[in-house]
Amino acid sequence: MKLAYRDLYPEFAAALANLTLQPQQQIVACLGGGADSQTILDLLDRWRSEHPEQRYLAIHLDHQFHPNSGTWAQGLARDCARRQFPHHGEVLTVAQGNRVSKEAAGREARYQRLTELADADAIMLLGQHRNDQIETLLLQLKRGAGPKGLAAMAKQTDAGQGAGTQTWLRPLLGVSKAEIYAYAHHHKLFWIEDDTNQDTRIERNFLRHKVVPVLEQRWPQFGASVLRSASLCAEQQQVLEELLTAQLATLCDASGALRVDSLRALSPATQRALLRQWLQQQQATMPSYAQLEQIREQMLYTSNDRQPCIEWGRFRLSRSRQRTLQLSQR
């Protein structure tokens, strides 16, 4: 059944109005090309007509994962030109490791490059929606994630400190994919349908096409319940991180390096929690549970005459002779 059209602009505008925007502050639409990010672009274009005091930019990064990606990038550039909306597009080279999936490597490289291209205090708009949130939580559950993973995606995340804080905002996180399609059709938007999104061999697509529809047919409120659970997990995680941050301040030296001997008297669960929080403060990609256990055992309990080193993704963690942890990028 085709969903009736609902204007998403009031919800979008409320999310932006809830921020403390400054004159000339940059607002960026992060374009993937699908109906979701193109809806974000259209909504931002409407906001732009009412708020000329901000600066605006649309960014599309082409991973070249699909043979038609170059054609798609040209279509997005033409759409921005038609709107007279400032646009930046470029090919993004994605380095892939043995233990990192192509999709994960692409996601990390994309966020890194978006951060570099935007102003230090930019508002970064992402197109993730309610269905994405449900799929993310189920994937995290399948992977055995804890509260942080089950919190899925936050509606708003601040990255950085002080004047260099970028705000990553998902204004449509409570909106269904069907509502986004209804909006996109009603406004005759340009968007791309990636045929790989139908490939159910991909985990997220399997959930999207084979699992979530059955769950929502059996329990119509399933989606709302998942969003509530994710929100509760996020709240508990926030409380935990506040407590861990205060404790870490007593365990780190003046340079921010973590003194591992201070952790040895604590329980394994607390050690893992503090290591995760410290790595998060260092803006590292979070290691798996098995990798974290390897870090905990080797960094805390190997003898003084050894200098263990553990690598995952593009990160390398080592222990100095002073028995402090130091993180670097490969």
Rank of each mutant, 00 (worst) to 15 (best):
L43Q: 03
Q74N: 09
F65H: 12
E50Y: 11
D62S: 07
I40E: 09
A73R: 15
H60C: 04
I59D: 05
W72D: 08
D79R: 10
L61G: 04
D62I: 05
T71A: 15
A73W: 07
H63R: 08
Q54C: 06
Q64A: 15
I40S: 11
R46Q: 07
Q54N: 05
H63S: 08
L61R: 13
Q54E: 00
A77M: 14
L61T: 08
P52E: 13
G70P: 12
L76N: 08
Q74R: 14
R78Y: 08
P67T: 03
L57G: 07
W47H: 10
P67H: 07
T39A: 12
R78G: 10
D45G: 14
C80W: 02
H66F: 06
N68S: 13
D62C: 06
L43N: 00
L61D: 08
P52N: 05
S49T: 03
H66E: 07
D42S: 05
P52C: 02
F65E: 03
D42C: 01
R46C: 10
G75T: 15
Q74K: 15
R46L: 04
E50L: 09
R78F: 13
L57Y: 09
L44F: 02
Q64K: 15
H63I: 01
C80F: 01
S49M: 02
D62K: 04
S49K: 07
H60I: 03
A77I: 07
I40D: 07
Q38T: 12
S49R: 06
I40Q: 11
